[in-house]
Computed example of a mutant assay.
Amino acid sequence: MNSPLSPAAGTASGNDPLTPGTHVYGLGGVVQRYHVHGTGPVCVVHSGGPGIFWDYLRMPLLEEHLTMVYVEPVGTSEDSRLPSHPHGYTRERYSGFLEVLINRLGVPRVHLLGHSHGAFVAAYHALHRAGRLAGVVLYEGAPVTGPEHAEEAGRMVGAFAARYAGHPGLPGVLAAFGAMADISGDEQTVAVARGVLPSYFADYWAHEERYAPFRDAIRATYVSGLDEHLVPESIDDRAALKGMEVPALVVVGRHDVICGIRWGRELHDLIPESELLVLEDSGHMGHVEEPELFAEAVRDFVARTTAPEPGAE
């Protein structure tokens, strides 16, 4: 039986922290895993949720050009849970684990890509621990949480419901949204994540054969959103984002109901000299819905913001 801090079966061998495969190390009494795929400039990827397993965010087209380092955020696997689980997973905590991981990779600069809740983490990291970042991709994020964000999401979900009024799948989606406030365990988290997912695509039911396997593969762990003192983490980055010095690409799907076009534009307006990509035929999952356009934009951004190797012409 493997020790909790020993590499599990199928992990990368050797001492190179960027060898393709799964890497495992212990930190602060918990396990941190990350998964390396592809070759090229290094892009560290932080998934959403919090509590959604990392693998929904695989980006094969980017792996053809970049070394994609997919973080498995602490708390998702049983051996990576904090003593305060399911509480205590603040942005500061995630960012601290990210900093250690990035330093371990042994490269001067990396790009950081965060999706959904991961975009909130990536923004925090770019604002507070930017030293080894060449650039940041804020993919389906927002500058705020709380009532204002919830109100906008409610409006977008209402528009989704109106668009699909009478569709046999709509009641299940709305029931899943209604169950969000009462989640208290892993099974409920998975059920709700899969239940709301049709609303996270521009037109899930028109492409259900393509998207259903993605939906069925979603895995999740219950993370409360409270700190270790059971206080909700409230986010308002508007003032801080005006001083962000890291090059930033903001990516948003036109039909995203959770972190939609309003928030993408606001992030773009707040961050100096940021770039904005609006995926016109995507919801919250542009890397699945419009993978070529998404990959091209991220790849080009990384190429333009990667410093040349010393001595290179």
Rank of each mutant, 00 (worst) to 15 (best):
T67F: 03
F53V: 03
L105G: 09
L98I: 10
L127K: 03
H149G: 01
V74L: 14
V36L: 09
T22Q: 11
Y94R: 04
Y34M: 11
V24R: 11
H111V: 11
T22S: 14
F53K: 02
D79E: 15
V69D: 08
S95H: 10
V121S: 10
L133Q: 06
G75I: 09
L133H: 05
L113E: 00
P143W: 06
C43G: 01
H35C: 12
F120T: 12
R132C: 01
P143T: 08
T67M: 04
N103T: 12
L138W: 00
P143G: 06
G38T: 14
R132K: 14
L105Q: 09
H125Q: 13
T67I: 06
G96H: 13
V137R: 00
A122Y: 08
H125I: 11
D55H: 14
L98G: 09
Y34R: 11
S95D: 14
G40Q: 03
V110M: 07
T90S: 15
G48V: 05
M68R: 01
A134Q: 03
P108V: 05
A126P: 10
G29R: 09
G26Q: 03
H117T: 07
P60K: 07
F97G: 04
G88N: 09
R33M: 03
E92C: 10
L98K: 06
R93G: 12
P108W: 01
S80H: 05
P60R: 05
R91K: 13
E99L: 12
V136G: 12
L138D: 00
E63P: 05
I102C: 06
S77C: 11
H125W: 09
E78T: 15
F97E: 15
L98T: 12
G135L: 02
L112N: 11
F120S: 11
W54A: 07
R33P: 00
Y139M: 03
T39Q: 15
S80L: 07
E78S: 15
G40E: 04
V69M: 13
V42A: 12
R58P: 00
H149N: 03
V107N: 08
A130E: 13
I102Q: 08
L66I: 05
N103P: 00
E92R: 15
H128I: 06
A123F: 07
R91Q: 14
V137M: 05
H87N: 15
S77K: 12
H128F: 10
P60G: 08
Y25C: 04
G118S: 10
H125A: 15
E140Y: 08
S95G: 14
E99W: 04
S95I: 10
L127I: 08
R91E: 09
V74Y: 00
Y56C: 05
N103G: 15
A123R: 07
I52M: 08
Y56W: 07
G75H: 05
Q32C: 04
H35L: 12
H125C: 12
R104D: 14
H85C: 10
Y70K: 00
S116R: 04
G96T: 14
L66T: 07
G141R: 02
P50G: 06
V69S: 07
